[in-house]
Simulated scan of single mutants.
Amino acid sequence: KLYDVASYGVSKEDFRIDMDEVRSIAIAEKPKVIVAGWSAYPRHQDFAAFRSIADEVGAYLWVDMAHFAGLVAAGLHPSPVPHADIVSSTVHKTLGGPRSGLILAKQEWAKKLNSSVFPGQQGGPLMHAIAAKATTFKVAGTEEFKDRQQRTLDGARLLAERLGGKDVSDQGISVLTGGTDVHLVLVDLRNSQLDGQQGEDLLHEIGITVNRNAVPFDPRPPMTPSGLRIGTAALASRGFGEKEFAEVADIIGTALAGGADLDALRGRVSKLAQDVPLYDGLEDWRLL
């Protein structure tokens, strides 16, 4: 046993983090480190409040911003950097770079972190990945990158709005927290005939890839959970704008509402892929 872990959760009323509860747990447990960040939470976190709690109980604050680092870089999401002792992230999610990671920290942690990463945890450095990371960070400072991140947010909000439609809600499907502030939507299937595995398979059948995901207070087992996590960063990188995201949102909503012509939905997906190809010259590319 390496760590003694005490967890905090979300409120049953609104599915958001209750900072008063976080404070109560921290006071009771006296942790050495408080961890913030998320992988399936569609709202902003209050990093200043986490900092205040950490200071009150004498803890360090570590924030993992792997999912929302691109939004932070574009100035479209609160930054944890001024508040945290250590910030970690991947580079391949909203930042859109190679599969790798980064750590930002105060100078006092530099020697310990560097020696822990190498030779402690990391193998030989991959120079092509380092070059790709440098390119990613340069791109992240451009207006083009900021536009992509804004389209990512806009697409997620369009998706959340469509999944709140009556045809979808009539099937017992809802959007957790009632919307999103970030690049993803967490679909709540607890009151639906569909479970997450069935929802994932249904959308896969028409050419859309999402992943099944547990939701808070999930009554179903982990392999067939009661949620779907749907992100918009990849489509924004592909070049999708408001028109294309509205179409994707309607396709997903129509499919989840049930009773739709799946061949027709598959055709709409194919047209989107053809209209906005991954690269010029791939307009007629087909999966063999």
Results as ranks from 00 to 15, higher is better:
residue 269 V to P: 14
residue 24 S to H: 04
residue 149 Q to W: 07
residue 217 F to L: 06
residue 151 R to F: 04
residue 102 L to E: 14
residue 37 G to R: 00
residue 203 L to S: 03
residue 122 Q to A: 15
residue 156 A to S: 04
residue 199 G to T: 00
residue 219 P to L: 04
residue 172 G to C: 00
residue 261 D to P: 09
residue 288 L to P: 15
residue 103 I to E: 09
residue 221 P to C: 11
residue 277 P to M: 05
residue 33 V to L: 10
residue 106 K to N: 07
residue 279 Y to L: 13
residue 71 L to N: 12
residue 207 G to R: 07
residue 271 K to S: 09
residue 198 Q to E: 11
residue 8 Y to R: 09
residue 29 E to R: 15
residue 139 V to Q: 08
residue 6 A to P: 00
residue 121 Q to F: 14
residue 181 D to T: 14
residue 20 D to N: 14
residue 2 L to N: 09
residue 78 P to V: 10
residue 244 E to N: 01
residue 89 S to P: 15
residue 190 R to D: 03
residue 1 K to I: 02
residue 179 G to H: 00
residue 51 R to C: 03
residue 51 R to D: 10
residue 94 T to S: 15
residue 11 S to L: 10
residue 255 A to M: 07
residue 84 A to F: 05
residue 31 P to S: 12
residue 270 S to L: 06
residue 229 R to I: 08
residue 70 G to W: 06
residue 244 E to K: 01
residue 41 Y to R: 08
residue 113 L to S: 04
residue 108 E to W: 01
residue 274 Q to G: 06
residue 267 G to Q: 03
residue 123 G to M: 06
residue 137 F to V: 12
residue 242 E to A: 14
residue 106 K to W: 10
residue 192 S to R: 02
residue 148 R to H: 06
residue 43 R to A: 07
residue 185 V to C: 09
residue 32 K to L: 10
residue 214 A to E: 13
residue 34 I to S: 09
residue 107 Q to K: 13
residue 66 A to E: 14
residue 24 S to N: 03
residue 58 G to L: 10
residue 84 A to Q: 11
residue 174 S to G: 05
residue 159 L to I: 00
residue 141 G to Q: 05
residue 41 Y to F: 09
residue 163 L to H: 11
residue 184 L to F: 06
residue 67 H to A: 13
residue 15 F to Q: 08
residue 234 A to Y: 09
residue 173 I to F: 00
residue 57 V to P: 00
residue 142 T to D: 03
residue 88 S to I: 07
residue 74 A to V: 01
residue 93 K to I: 13
residue 106 K to I: 00
residue 70 G to M: 10
residue 204 H to C: 11
residue 242 E to P: 07
residue 270 S to R: 15
residue 110 A to V: 00
residue 77 H to L: 06
residue 173 I to L: 00
residue 88 S to D: 15
residue 68 F to N: 15
residue 172 G to T: 11
residue 206 I to W: 03
residue 57 V to K: 15
residue 257 A to D: 01
residue 159 L to W: 02
residue 252 I to A: 03
residue 130 I to V: 14
residue 39 S to K: 08
residue 147 D to F: 09
residue 282 L to C: 11
